[in-house]
Design a protein around this nucleic acid. Structure first.
Length: 739
DNA sequence: CTCTTCCAGCTTTTT
DNA sequence: GCTGGAAGAG
């Protein structure tokens, strides 16, 4: 194969030097996927068997794209046996093969975040803990962080540091919840997303034979988006690569945007420590964007302190300067941005598929959708509530999961009384206590329903339900996924229940279930045709790790793309509009006062800018509805961080004609609009004094009324125009003031 | 046990 | 502004 034509010199080096550890720093748009796919092709070309190559990505989409491109290079037959997929799918697959070793059965169910939270909620109730304090979301993210740091429940309980920090957060019982959660998962034969990585680590730690098997097997390992790996993923890779040391990681520290879910930028920064003999390849030529866009992105990212030195450059044309739209309101902003897209599409005869609107939060899509719909412009929104998260789809899936794994308690509880069949909370609680007494799962209690002491009518209903599930379970071992699903939808009364509702929402719910059924049908048929397993268990294990974006249907109408900046990573569009560039939105309020978090927001902004090929439009609004309240945000500091030579018309900072916001008449108060956030500096507790104008990340600008207490007990009473008088413990309140 | 209404919390990002 | 869950009535 002749690569020299298709690759520049650094790309070529990264492709042909296949042996030993390699770190590829791939700037935005520098042909990262090209290097990865050619490297895989090179390996196969050298005669390495496909099944000895492991290639890991973060999204299914990236994995599929890579598979497609390798197929095109070397042919499908050769590429078919590559181990190519997301971390979660690959290690999920290995765990199913090795499940008995670590105390699971191969048909374990995978819980998504919502399932996990439901279970946590129940545990909090069971333990008689305060549910206001132990919010499922918070507890789950705490447990998730622990798992990603490989802290087991025992280690969690034993760690003085962790217990201390939980105590300070006034949540000293998290270790208990974690223990119950882990035990219940095991008993119910369930793993959550983090378990797929944690349990793999446990497998490799406790079963050296298993580790060695996979170490031997995977002669070459490639990892995409290495800057996004968490500790758990890092350790799996490190262990697997120990034998052959043929590990190639590709990433860009400047695009690390997932620290909130445990990604550790250090993994890429410290690669050289783990593999001192490594070779480094830097891909610095950007093929995607104009020099204006690359220059603007460089000027922004240069403000970050923690990074691997590199300079992205482009030999493309200079292109247009960046346009900045300042709108009076959020509604006005969407009108102007959409108007601009419409004008460009018309004047330059471009189709709508060449435009993307990127925002920080999903909630921002709504206004744009409204305007686009009104203007009859085709668009597609990515993200938000996915198909698989819809209630009716989750209900149906819960039935299917229960059929495959009857110990899955979350699924059982979800459907035991849906559609209504007269088995209410009281009966379920009763059955749960029976289960607990006998140290059994809930379904095992159902199997003893005759002796559970329920009312005769309820007992009959429980038995009928149980027999229906058992019948489907028997079916599921012999029949195709589709046959079981179809039967279940009818037998359980789901179809009848949905058909009874003729409201538009009801109709759409029924359509969603029909759509799910036809997807299962397609799965069964495709599987049968290609001689693969067409059973329900396999179907469920495949879709557990799918998201909406993996279900894309090809569609010939070109559409404007609406998505968050996070989900745009890896994509590119001729024209990109980055909207809602306002302080407290982008950068988000939570990050504004924490330098590392702010750097991550800046990287996110960098990702947004580098999605654009030809043209960038940035916008912000001077007033915005946020959770039903009007706010007057200031333009994002990120706008002013772009070197001015790349900007077409720099808007002057709005001062006078900013719309007046109904401030209560508090004397001597600086209106929110005049506090210059970029000039704010944190103030120490002892420096706060009465009369001072201060800024609080949540309450905004306020005036100190009085101060009392000393040391860590020092408190201030501060009047905030929008929130009233607040008493703040200065040790915790992140107050700042203008320099 | 079921249905309706009301309220709180949410909004950072996802495998 | 919306959603999911709690609470209260029948």
């Amino acid at each position: 194969m002749d690569f020299t034509r298709e690759l520049n010199s650094s790309q070529l080096q990264a492709v042909i030097n296949t042996d030993g550890p390699a770190l590829v720093i791939a700037g935005a748009g520098s042909g990262k996927t090209r290097v990865l796919t050619y490297r895989v092709a090179q390996l196969l070309g050298k005669g390495v068997p496909a099944y000895r190559v492991l290639a890991l990505t973060f999204t299914n989409k990236a994995a599929r794209e890579m598979q497609r491109r390798v197929d095109a290079l070397v042919g499908e037959n050769q590429a078919a046996h590559l181990w190519m997929g997301t971390f979660h799918s690959i290690f999920g697959r290995i765990l199913r093969a090795e499940a008995p070793a670590i105390g699971f059965s191969p048909d374990f169910t995978i819980y998504d975040a919502q399932d996990s939270r439901n279970m946590i909620k129940e545990i909090v109730r069971d333990l008689h803990l305060d549910d206001k304090l132990y919010k499922p979301h918070d507890v789950h993210s705490r447990i998730s962080m622990a798992k990603n740091m490989l802290v087991t429940p025992d280690a969690y309980a034993a760690s003085e540091t962790i217990r201390q920090s939980d105590k300070i957060a006034k949540k000293p019982a998290i270790h208990e919840i974690y223990r119950f959660y882990a035990n219940r998962c095991k008993r119910n034969n369930v793993m959550d997303f983090d378990d797929l990585l944690l349990q793999t680590n446990i497998l490799f730690r406790d079963f050296p034979d298993a580790l060695e098997k996979y170490q031997q097997k995977f002669e070459y390992i490639l990892v995409d988006e290495y800057q996004d790996t968490n500790y758990s993923q890092y350790l799996i890779i490190k262990r697997l690569a120990e034998q052959h040391h043929n590990l190639c990681v590709v990433g860009d520290d400047a695009q690390s945007i997932y620290s909130f879910r445990g990604a550790r930028i250090e993994n890429i920064l410290n690669f050289k420590n783990d593999y001192p003999e490594y070779s480094l390849y830097k891909l610095e030529q950007n093929y995607r964007s104009t020099t204006t866009i690359v220059g603007a992105a460089n000027s922004v990212i240069a403000r970050n302190t923690e990074q691997i030195p590199k300079e992205l450059f482009s030999n493309n044309e200079e292109g247009e300067k960046i346009k900045i739209i300042r709108a009076l309101s959020d509604r006005e902003e969407s009108l102007q941005v959409v108007g601009e897209i419409q004008r460009l599409a018309r004047d330059e005869q471009q189709d709508y598929g060449r435009f993307a609107i990127l925002y920080r939060t999903n909630a921002q899509s709504r206004l744009f959708e409204e305007i686009l719909r009104r203007q009859n412009i085709p668009y597609r929104v990515y993200g938000g509530t996915s198909f698989y998260q819809r209630k009716e789809v989750k209900d149906m899936l819960a039935y299917l999961r229960l059929t495959v794994n009857r110990d899955d308690e979350e699924s059982l509880r979800r459907v035991i009384n849906y559609p209504r069949r007269g088995i209410g909370d009281t009966s379920v609680e009763h059955l749960r206590s029976v289960a607990r007494e006998r140290d059994a799962t809930l379904y095992q209690a159902l199997e003893q329903a005759e002796r559970a002491g329920l009312a005769p009518a309820t007992t009959r209903r429980v038995i009928a339900f149980r027999e229906m599930i058992d019948e489907c379970a028997a079916m599921a071992t012999n029949e195709s996924a589709y046959l079981v699903a179809r039967h279940l939808a009818a037998a359980a009364g789901v179809i009848a229940d949905l058909s009874a509702d003729s409201s538009p929402e009801g109709v759409s719910r029924k359509e969603n279930v029909e759509e799910l059924l036809s997807a299962i049908k397609e799965f069964s048929e495709t599987a049968r045709r290609s001689g693969e397993e067409d059973r329900l268990a396999r179907y469920l294990s495949e879709i557990a790790l799918l998201t909406d974006q993996d279900n894309e249907r090809p569609d010939d109408t070109p559409k404007v793309t609406l998505m968050t900046v996070h989900s745009a990573k890896g994509l590119e569009f001729p024209t990109v509009c980055v909207v809602g560039l306002e302080e407290s939105l982008f950068p988000s309020i939570q990050s504004a006062y924490a330098p590392p978090a702010l750097e991550e927001e800046r990287r996110l902004f960098y990702v947004a800018l580098t999605r654009a090929e030809k043209r960038l439009i940035l916008s912000h609004a001077l007033s915005r509805y946020h959770n039903g309240e009007v706010t007057s945000p200031r333009p994002s500091r990120f706008i002013s961080e772009i070197a001015p030579e790349f900007i077409a018309t720099r808007a002057t900072p709005p001062r006078q004609q900013r719309p007046a916001i109904h401030l209560p008449s508090a004397p001597h108060l600086i209106p929110e609009s005049e506090a210059d956030l970029s000039r704010l500096q944190p103030i120490a507790p002892e420096e706060v004094e009465p009369g001072q104008v201060v800024h609080h990340p949540g309450f905004g600008t306020g005036k100190v009324a009085s101060v009392d207490g000393a040391g860590s007990n020092r408190k201030a009473r501060v009047y905030f125009p929008r929130h009233g008088m607040k008493v703040l413990l200065l040790k915790f309140a992140k107050l700042s003031a203008e320099k």
